[in-house]
Computed example of a mutant assay.
Amino acid sequence: MPTDRLTDRPTDRATGRPTGGLAVIELRQYTLRPGRRDELIDLFDREFVETQEETGMTVLGQFRDLDDPDRFVWLRGFPDMAARRHALTAFYDGPVWAEHGARANVTMLDSDDVLLLRPLAPGSGPAVRPADRPRPGAPAPDRFVSATVWSFPPGQHEGAVLLRDGLLPALRATGPAPLAVLATEPAPNTFPRLPVRTGENAVVVLGSYPDEHAHRRHLAALRTDPRARKILPAIEQAAATRPHTLRLTPTPRSLLT
Rank of each mutant, 00 (worst) to 15 (best):
A131I: 03
L109Y: 00
R133M: 09
P119F: 08
G137A: 10
M108F: 05
R118L: 07
D142A: 15
P136I: 11
P139R: 14
S124N: 09
G123L: 06
P141C: 14
P130D: 13
P119H: 07
D113N: 13
R129D: 15
M108W: 03
P126M: 01
R135V: 13
R129N: 14
L120Y: 07
P130L: 11
N105Q: 06
A121G: 09
P122F: 06
D132Y: 01
R129C: 04
P126G: 04
L116V: 07
V106W: 01
A138F: 10
M108N: 06
A127I: 06
R129Q: 03
D132N: 02
G137D: 08
R129T: 05
P141T: 14
G125M: 02
L120S: 07
T107R: 08
R135M: 06
P122A: 15
A121N: 01
G123S: 08
V106I: 11
T107Q: 10
N105M: 08
D142I: 12
P122Q: 11
P126D: 01
A104Q: 05
P136Q: 04
S124E: 15
D112G: 13
V106D: 12
P130A: 11
L115M: 02
G125H: 05
D132A: 06
R118G: 09
T107I: 05
L116H: 15
A131M: 04
L117T: 01
V128W: 00
P126K: 05
R118S: 11
A104R: 05
A131Q: 13
R129A: 08
A131R: 13
V106T: 11
P122K: 06
P126V: 03
A104M: 10
R133W: 09
D110C: 02
D112R: 14
T107C: 15
A138K: 02
S124W: 14
G125D: 02
A131L: 10
G125R: 03
M108S: 11
A127D: 14
R129Y: 01
D113V: 13
L109V: 12
S111N: 12
M108Y: 04
D132L: 02
L117G: 04
G137H: 03
G137K: 01
R129G: 07
L115V: 00
G123H: 07
D112P: 00
P126A: 09
G125F: 08
L115A: 00
L115F: 02
A140W: 11
P136G: 04
V114I: 15
